[in-house]
């Protein structure tokens, strides 16, 4: 099976400038290309290589090297291959043209990445708010968003229960001794 995935990668390499490719495991290959190439590769995969559906659009935030890595995972029902087409976009104010025209479900994936990472997808028919209602802060999934700090500002954790936190086993022992004492008293 792997050789056909290599043939596949090699065929794609011939038509498009592929910066890097690797085969992760049987049936899963990844290739890096530039943002301009993205649409070409995806349309090629769908039309020529019969990759019927887009499983998901992954997005990882590499804050050290200051880029988001978007990976479009196309899946083919005939050969059961998944190809991850990866592109790198800047962390702030980047915009990738939508792939909704190719696969309809991309609209939902892009909408989620737009809300969580702030990547703009011009052409997407429904880029309004998805999970968070009236969210004023920065997109929450970016690494520099500190969720514990956000919790401290917006919500108040229960104080009175904390200091009274007692050691369960000690409490249990006390209860048992009191019970024994009581039984002994009733015994006399």
């Amino acid at each position: 099976m792997t050789e056909t995935i290599d043939n596949l990668l090699e065929r794609i390499g011939r038509n498009f400038q592929i910066t890097g490719q690797e085969v992760k495991k049987a049936g899963l290959a990844a290739l890096h290309c530039s943002q301009e190439q993205l649409h070409g590769v995806l349309i090629y995969l769908k039309e020529v290589e019969k990759f019927d559906t887009l499983t998901m659009i992954g997005c990882a935030d590499w804050i050290e090297d200051d880029y988001f890595e978007l990976s479009y995972m196309a899946y083919s029902f005939t050969t059961f291959f998944t190809v991850m087409v990866k592109i790198r976009v800047s962390r702030d104010g980047s915009s990738v043209p939508t792939v909704e025209g190719i696969w309809r479900q991309a609209r939902t994936f892009e909408r989620e990445i737009h809300e969580m990472f702030g990547v703009d997808f011009p052409g997407n028919t429904r880029l309004k708010e998805f999970f968070l209602e009236n969210w004023q802060g920065m997109p929450p999934m970016k690494r520099d968003f500190d969720t514990v700090q956000f919790v401290k500002d917006h919500y108040k954790l229960r104080e009175e229960g904390r200091e009274g936190a007692c050691n369960v086993s000690v409490e249990r022992k006390k209860r048992i001794d009191a019970k024994k004492l009581e039984l002994k008293k009733e015994g006399e």
Partner: peptide
């Protein structure tokens, strides 16, 4: 599940796509 490790003891990114993400919306 799309999972990204980055060498530390925590996973860099775990992205989940359930079947309803496709069925319930578009």
């Amino acid at each position: 599940y799309y999972m990204v490790g980055d060498g530390t003891d925590k996973l860099r990114r775990v992205q989940v796509k359930g079947p309803s993400a496709v069925h319930a919306i578009t």
